[in-house]
Nucleic acid binder design. Structure first.
Lengths: 112, 112
DNA sequence: TATCTATATACCCTTTAAGGAATATTCCAA
DNA sequence: TTGGAATATTCCTTAAAGGGTATATAGATA
């Protein structure tokens, strides 16, 4: 599995960064807006954004004086795919187990 | 968004824990097996498993002397749902933006 | 009961993360 | 070109994480 996944997960594992990401979900915003809406200090906000940037979760669109932060779609697609592969594999393992148990049961207690 | 999400993400954000989870994806295992297969010391393995346990990512099935760790499905379902909600919302925002730009374009440069 | 195996916990050490405050940088406008 | 707004970076301090080693605990068995 790619090492980048751990980085993605780590970037999202801080509650303030999670809030930032939830906020950006509603649309791109400059740093000052993010800080204001979440009641964070500007320096911490920049620092958290840097972590998100290095994890490729956000991108920057410079507009004049400001830097508009946009959410990227790729990491979420990757996260969804990864997470779904667990669901699928676990479900298929359980199904196989049930099938096995049914067969075993039928062998002990045959219907006919 | 639930505070548990950050905990889930944090538990998964360490590369050794990620390896443990990937390993358990193939089936439940006792601590010793996990440690052996991943070349981890037993104490660190137990510690990582504790983090995963507290994040409700695994559960324990005690069998005689040993403790079999199982992956839970719920956190992955939650993660998938959360991540998908981002994809959806981002795609729908982009679609609305495109629609808006098209209309704007049509107003400036009408077809008829 | 004494012992062996599997696992968890405690303690120590080093590294890293996160917040606060101050400062540097960048870009714009007068 | 000087000043001001927006943002990034630095430095400091504190807290927490992760690894290593030793030890404690729980259950099985002789």
């Amino acid at each position: 599995m790619s090492d980048g996944l751990a980085r993605t997960l780590f970037a999202l594992s801080d509650s303030n960064r999670l809030k930032i990401v939830e906020l950006l979900k509603t649309g791109p915003l400059p740093v000052g807006e993010i800080a204001a809406q979440l009641r964070l200090n500007q320096p911490q906000t920049s620092k958290h954004l840097k972590v998100l940037l290095e994890a490729d979760i956000v991108r920057i669109e410079p507009v004049a004086n400001r830097r508009i932060y946009h959410l990227r779609t790729e990491p979420f697609q990757g996260l969804t795919a990864w997470s779904q592969s667990f669901e699928q594999q676990m479900i298929s393992r359980m199904t196989r187990l049930e099938t096995y148990l049914e067969q075993k049961q039928n062998a002990v207690n045959p219907k006919e």
